[in-house]
Simulated assay, not measured.
Amino acid sequence: MTTDILNEVKINEAMLHRCVEKAYILADHKKIGKTCSFVSCPLETLTHIITDEKADKSEVSRFIHQGIKVIQVTKE
């Protein structure tokens, strides 16, 4: 999980450290596979990603291969 806003890093880190068992990230297809300047957490920290059906299939496969549960939603 990355951001272009340095001040968001500490906020994102604090939210993730409060997760007891599962850490969910909600990101639409425009954010999946994109990298920004600052890292809020490594992928290993995440347990679930919720995205839409337009997310890049290779990125989704990479997440699944790393043990992250990917939930893809559709318009319907």
Rank of each mutant, 00 (worst) to 15 (best):
R62F: 07
S40V: 08
E44Y: 04
E76N: 15
L43N: 01
D56C: 07
I50F: 07
K75N: 11
K57F: 01
S40T: 09
P42V: 14
K22L: 04
Q72M: 13
A14H: 09
D4T: 08
I5S: 02
K57G: 09
E59K: 09
I5V: 02
D52A: 10
S37I: 05
D28K: 01
I32C: 10
L46R: 04
C19Y: 01
T51R: 05
D4G: 15
R62H: 05
K30M: 03
T45E: 07
K22T: 06
K75R: 15
K54P: 00
S61I: 05
I5P: 00
R62K: 14
A14S: 14
V73K: 07
H48I: 08
N7I: 07
L43R: 02
I64T: 10
R18N: 14
A23D: 02
D4N: 14
T74R: 10
E76L: 13
I11V: 13
C41N: 05
E59T: 01
A23R: 15
I25R: 04
I64W: 00
T45N: 10
I25G: 07
H48F: 11
I71D: 03
I32V: 13
L46M: 15
T35S: 15
T2S: 12
E59A: 11
L6K: 12
N7V: 02
N12Y: 08
E59P: 00
T45H: 10
K10G: 07
N7A: 02
T47R: 07
R18H: 11
E59Q: 12
K69A: 05
N12F: 00
T35N: 12
T51E: 02
T47S: 13
C36Y: 14
